[in-house]
Computed example of a mutant assay.
Amino acid sequence: MSGSTAATAHHWTPDAIGDQHGRTALVTGGNSGIGLETARVLARHGARVILAGRRQDTLDEAAAALGAEQPGSEVGTVVVDLADLASIRRAGERLAAEPGAIDLLINNAGVMNVPERRTTADGFELTFGTNHLGHFALTAGLMPALLRSPAARVVTVSAVAARWRSGRLDDLNSERRYGAMTAYAKSKRANVVFTRELARRLAGTHVEAVVVHPGSAMTNLQRHSSGPLSRMVVAVAARALMGSQQGAAWPSLYAATSPDVRSGQFIGPAGRDQTTGTPVPVPLPRDADDLAEGERLWTASERLTGVRFPA
C-alpha cells in the first residue's frame, strides 16, 4: 500500500508503517479494544481516523482520549449499529456523501458467545447479523467512498473460529438450532468467504479486500460470557493463551498498510497455534475459497439485507 515502508512480514511491527497523512481510515468498534488500538496506531502515523460505534457518548470519549494522546491528530466519529440496517444505511449515506475518500475500512466490530439466541432489529440472529450481515451492508454502502480512493483496502476481522467444523454456512440465522459459539464460528467463516468473494468481484479496481484474525486476546467480545463454566474458561484463557490487545491489532494494521499484502489474503499471527506473534499470510480455512460457496453466501447476504453493491 502506498505510504508504507517495505518490511518482511516475518519481522513486521507497527514501526514499519509509513506516513499515512492524507488517508482516511474508518474503524468499526473503534471506541474500544482492538478497534481503538488499531485507530490509535493509524492516527499516530498521520491518518485521519473515523471511529464507528453504537453510542455517541462512548465514541466521543474515545475520540477525546486519542486527541489528548496525539495532539494534532484528526479523529472523527460516526454512529452505526451493525445490528440495525437502518442505522447502517444512515451512516453509509452520510459518509458516501462527503467529498473525500475512505482509504481504509476496518470491519472490526463484533459480538461473541451470546448465551441465548437473540435477534437484530431486522430479525437476523444477532451474532451472524452483526458480524457478517452488518459489515456486508456497511461495506456496500461505503463502496462509493472507497472507489474514490486511489488505493483502498477493506480489512475484515475474522477469528480462528473460522476454521471450526461447526461453522458451516447453512442455517445462517440459526433458526433450526442455536449454539453460541457455533453462531460465532459461522459468522467468522462468513467473514473469510465474504472477503474472498469481494476480492474476486473487485479485481481490476483499486480497492483490495483482506481478511485477518487477531489470534487470542481479551477484548470486549467476551462481554457476553456468562455462567460459572464460561467465566472459568475465560479466566484460564486469559492466563494461558491470550495476548495483548496491542499485539492483537497487528494483523489488522499489517493488512491495512503493508505493501506486501495482496487482495484476498488471510493474515494472522505467526506464533504457536496462530495465537500471538508477528502477522503473516496464513492458510485459508478448508474450502473457504470454494467459488460456489462464495456465490451462495453473497446471494443470501443480498437477499437478507436487501443491499446491492455498486456495479
Rank of each mutant, 00 (worst) to 15 (best):
E93A: 15
S166K: 08
A43R: 01
T182D: 11
T8L: 09
L104Y: 07
P279A: 09
L297T: 13
V78N: 12
L202T: 03
I34L: 14
V114H: 10
A91Q: 09
Q70A: 02
E93H: 12
A237F: 10
P310G: 05
M218L: 15
I88G: 13
P310M: 02
P285G: 06
Q56V: 15
A52E: 08
P259W: 13
R262K: 14
V75F: 10
L202R: 03
A217W: 04
P281V: 05
D15G: 12
V233C: 08
D15C: 09
T205K: 00
A65P: 01
S216Y: 06
R296C: 08
S230A: 11
A159V: 06
Y184H: 05
H10V: 13
L284V: 06
Y184C: 03
A137C: 10
V79P: 10
L172H: 03
T275C: 09
S216A: 15
G294E: 10
A65G: 04
L138H: 01
Y178M: 04
E197G: 12
D170E: 10
S258E: 07
A255L: 09
A159K: 03
G72E: 00
E98N: 03
T5F: 11
G134R: 07
G179L: 01
N107A: 14
T28W: 09
V75W: 06
S216T: 11
R54P: 11
F194C: 12
G123R: 06
A137G: 06
D260C: 06
R40M: 01
A240L: 15
L142Q: 03
E208C: 06
L85N: 02
E295I: 07
R286K: 15
R148G: 03
L291I: 12
Y254G: 06
A43W: 01
A137F: 11
A238C: 05
T8S: 13
G123V: 08
R148A: 08
M112F: 14
A101V: 04
A209F: 11
E293I: 12
A235S: 14
V207H: 02
P99Y: 09
V49M: 14
A52Q: 05
R286T: 14
T156Y: 02
L36T: 02
A43H: 03
G33F: 05
P228C: 08
R272W: 15
